[in-house]
Amino acid sequence: MSAHRANRPVLDVRNAKKIYGSGEATVVALAGVSLTVHRGEYVAIMGSSGSGKSTLMNILGCLDIPTTGRYLLDGVDVSKLNDRQLALVRNRRIGFVFQSFNLIPRTTALANVELPMAYAGVRSAERKRRAHAALDLVGLADRADHEPNQLSGGQQQRVAVARALVTAPALVLADEPTGNLDTQSTADVLAVLDSLNQSGRTIVLITHEDDVAMHAKRVIRLVDGKIVSDQRNGHLAASRSAMLRDAYSTAVYR
C-alpha cells in the first residue's frame, strides 16, 4: 500500500450545495460546504435540526447527490456514477449506522450482518465467518441467532454497527446512532465506535448531543447549511498514529 493512498482523503467535499425546489419555494439545505476527512479520523458533525446535517449525511452516504459541487469518496467522484455503481460504492466503501437501527425485521442478527456481504457476492462460509467475527467485535457473539425484536435497542444498534463494519468500508457513517438509546446503551455503542476508531476505522458521526460529540477527535458545526466551526479535540500526534495504524490494518484486512 503506497503512502499516496494512505494520504488520500477518505472524504473530499468541494463547495457542495443542495437546493430543494425552485423559484419562490427554494430551500437551500447546503450553502456551499467544503470538507476533507482523512483516513483514521473520528469526526462528529453537529448542528440543530434544519442545519443541513441530514442532507450532508445523505450526500456523504451516496444516498443523495449535491446540486452543485463535487464529492470524492476515497478518491472517486461519486456525482458521476450511475445507479448501479452507486449501489456498489455504498456496498464496498460505506458502512451505515442509522438512528432507527434499520435492521431487517424477522431476520437473525447474523443474517443481518451477512446481508451487505451477500450483495457483494461473498460466499456463504466466508460470510458466516466474517459476520461472527464482526458480532464478536461488538460483543454480541452470543446473540447471533436472535431476531431484532428479541434484542434491546443498544444490542440492535451494535448489530447495526457490526453490519456497517463487516465489509471493511473506507468510512463508517453514523447518523445519530444514539438518538434512540438510553444512557447505558449509548455508552455501549459509543464504546464500540471508539474502539473501532482506535483500530483505525474512519468514522463520521452525526449528532446534536455534545457529550456524544466529545468522543470524536474533530467536531464540525453546521448552521444554516454552512460550516461555522471545525475544531480538533485530540492531539495531532494521536491522529497521525491512528493513520499509520489504519494503513497497517487495512493492508491486513484486505
Partner: peptide, 16 residues
C-alpha cells in the same frame, strides 16, 4: 418500502 431502502443503502443493486 423501508426494508427496500435499507437493502439499497447496504448496496443492493436494482437488479437484485
Amino acid at each position: 418500502t423501508r426494508e427496500i431502502g435499507i437493502r439499497k443503502a447496504l448496496g443492493a443493486p436494482k437488479r437484485t
